[in-house]
Nucleic acid binder design. Structure first.
Lengths: 332, 332
DNA sequence: CAAACCTGATAAAACGATTTACCATCTCCC
DNA sequence: GGGAGATGGTAAATCGTTTTATCAGGTTTG
């Protein structure tokens, strides 16, 4: 097995304590001894055992990131920026993808109790009583991205996504569209509820009629939902999609039906994932600044871990940004 | 802090050893005691400390996944399938993205030495002497996806990507194209070297002239490379791209120049990432079965960890599959 | 009845580091 | 020269589990 501190100590002719003192930079050890220990450690390619060290120090240098689906580019963006912050702080990231499994997010909280990680960034689509309970009794820092169950006081980063939908709707209204169908995600998820609210408000404010279709937050969902939307509302002149996967899926169906976008019907998405630029026509979207949300969540978490932040929970809300592209008539 | 075994023991009126014995299912403990301990543990919401348990048992229930760039969909596919296998085995995944940082992959090997993980799946684009040395002295199982430095004997999953390029070239030749430009990645990476080989062989076999451009393995790289390719070879009738990001970037440039694909020029990619279906025209690609590679690598790793596989290192090579789409004239 | 045998629980020794309290020396200075 | 102070190192306790060896008490058995 790997060399341990005792091996280094033996080779350097000192005690285990001395090895530790030298390698951790503390203590008053003579230059000569330091040199000997360093040499011995290097020679044996010694790396301190993280579990032993962590057990004693009560730290793991690891955080968990819990996401609904690592296959979704939004969460990849978030994961990437969190990973970058963590690496800069000398931390590793344990990635957990809950993949729609009921209760998987609650299970993940055990990582905190079991001392597997020092903190967690949690993204959960659904609020449940159990999750709320779990979040109530935590001894380790956590930062939630998205809605917090029961409005508990925990560090929190949110995107103002209902405002995002309003931006999209107003953009389409401004283009003269009047028969907007909202393609939403499953109504038992927080984002869907929030985005529906944004759609309702802006449609009502404009004195128009609500038109609603729901599907899974996936490409396939969008494909099926586009068909349903145009069956239910044949004269629709715009599809407002609750996220980009739905929007891109809808574009695919429209293209196959030779329905012209944006001439016959305009389409907008939300999240501003990379694929918006790639698909054709390029998808107008509302940026919810995923990478930035990830960065901020990580920063908040590390502020807690370092003790830099100790006060009451912080909530940050990011404002959305409309990105006009071809699918609503923007420049190609 | 969290409840520990001693707390449970006190509440249940037994010793710490008994608590452990009960919770780990071993030993000969009476039904009555088992019940008491279970109840106490549940009441205190006891979760064994993973570091302490791991220190004693010499196991972490965690593997590391080291990828070049978690922003690339190929690695997302791989990560997703590895995560799924790991979860099924009760393991967590620590994700490390090396992001082009020199030596980051070698540093990651320290995770094994430091006992942070039980095993590792490593994807490294470049072979170096240092990495080869690092791989030589490992006490923990590892599975490398892609070329192994120095042809060391370690568990290994590869895609036959030179054959993949051959498939693409032959497909284009079969369509009557004769002036194929190869848009390759950086020649100091293993995949680029391997894919170049495939291009050379098939072009030579057809008695044609080699045309070569290189760029980073990114969308931006592909965009720039398309311009360079058509400047250097104005009469090119096909772009063979070494991966899909290059291909999609090239498509973008061609579209902006109003060069018709596939009528004026055909384009093929490689990896068959999800975006191939999304972009327009849909990109013909060669599937290297990323998800399957991930699954197999994880499986090989867990076979080592469980002791199910103990013999000499295993190498698996997956054969590529051509996926014809619009960008070379397939059905829309 | 004593020796042998079960049964069920526990004490104690790991695992491999960190850290505190302590112990030698050696120096200094009145 | 001897007490105070530095200096440099070490022994031992500790983190929270797991696991082995042991032990107490009851039951069987020759």
């Amino acid at each position: 097995m790997s060399a341990k501190a005792a091996d280094v100590a033996r080779l350097a002719g000192v005690s285990v304590s001395t090895v530790s003192l030298v390698l951790n930079g503390n203590g008053r050890i003579s230059a000569k001894t330091i040199e000997q220990v360093r040499a011995a450690a290097a020679q044996l390619n010694y790396v301190p055992n993280a579990q032993a060290s962590g057990l004693r120090r009560r730290i793991t240098h690891r955080i968990a990131l819990v996401v609904p689906d690592i296959g979704n580019s939004v969460y990849v963006s978030i994961a990437k920026s969190i990973q970058q912050v963590a690496k800069a702080k000398g931390y590793y990231v344990s990635l957990v993808s809950t993949d729609g499994i009921e209760g998987a997010d609650i299970d993940a909280l055990q990582l905190l109790h079991g001392g597997q990680v020092d903190g967690m960034v949690l993204i959960s689509l659904k609020s449940s009583r159990a999750l709320e309970q779990g979040l109530k009794h935590l001894q380790k820092p956590i930062c939630v991205i998205g809605r917090v169950p029961g409005n508990l006081g925990v560090d929190n980063v949110q995107a103002n996504s209902d405002q995002g939908v309003r931006l999209a709707v107003e953009h389409l209204l401004g283009l003269g569209r009047r028969r907007l169908v909202f393609i939403n995600g499953p109504l038992d998820t927080n984002p869907a509820v929030q985005r529906l609210e944004g759609y309702r408000q802006s449609i009502r404010a404009a004195g128009l009629e609500e038109r609603l279709v729901t599907a899974e937050f996936t490409l396939e969902g969008g494909y099926a939902a586009a068909e349903e939307a145009l069956n239910s509302y044949p004269n629709a002149d715009a599809l407002v999609c609750a996220n980009d996967l739905l929007g891109i899926g809808a574009l695919k169906w429209l293209r196959q039906r030779k329905i012209r976008v944006p001439e016959d019907i305009a389409v907008s998405g939300m999240d501003d994932i990379r694929e918006c630029e790639i698909c054709s026509p390029a998808l107008t979207s509302v940026a919810l600044h995923a990478a930035e949300r990830g960065r901020m969540a990580a920063q908040m978490l590390f502020d807690r871990l370092s003790g830099a932040s100790t006060g009451s929970p912080i909530r940050v809300v990011l404002e959305p940004t409309l990105r006009v592209r071809e699918s609503t008539g923007g420049q190609p």
